[in-house]
């Protein structure tokens, strides 16, 4: 088999495997989504030091999980459930910050950092006019 043939077969096999994976991911997970677990992981336990209510064994946290389960069973949306808790404990009770004017910097700074970094890297490339006449 020539190197070229090997290369083509390599690409085909790789593409095939990727297709299987992508289709599988689109069809989706066979497990159920657990709203209580995912919401509970984003609500802080007020009497602990930074733990989420689903992770903390404290009585307060467990009571809040019970309240959370009731709200989920009532069919409230994610935001409504978060609003219930922030109305009583303040915004700091959430572990996942919303995208608001106040948290703009929080999301923007990493993007600025990536942009700045990419620009700095690109600016380190050898400028084309200096390459002529050189042997690399």
């Amino acid at each position: 088999m020539s190197a070229r043939t090997r290369q083509i077969i390599g690409w085909v096999v790789t593409a095939g495997l990727v297709a299987v994976i992508v289709v599988g991911m689109i069809i989706g997970d066979t497990r159920d989504e657990d709203r209580v677990a995912s919401l509970g992981a984003a609500i802080k336990c007020p009497v602990c030091q930074g733990e989420a209510i689903v992770d903390s064994p404290s009585e307060t946290a467990q009571a809040m999980v019970v309240v959370l389960e009731e709200k989920v069973a009532e069919g409230l949306s994610d935001e409504e459930i978060f609003d219930f808790f922030t109305a009583r404990y303040g915004d700091g009770i959430r572990l996942d910050p919303r995208f608001t004017a106040q948290t703009l910097l929080l999301w923007a700074l990493p993007i600025v950092a990536v942009g700045g970094g990419v620009w700095m890297i690109l600016s380190r490339r050898r400028r084309p006019e200096l390459v002529s006449g050189e042997t690399t």
Partner: peptide, 28 residues
């Protein structure tokens, strides 16, 4: 590193400048 640093210090800085509270935890 910038993401982790900003995430860790943001609540403190926001509170100092505006008094608002925000929680930044595991999910972020």
């Amino acid at each position: 590193a910038i993401v982790v640093l900003v995430g860790t210090l943001y609540p403190m800085f926001l509170e100092a400048f505006g008094g608002a509270e925000v929680g930044v935890g595991r999910p972020f």
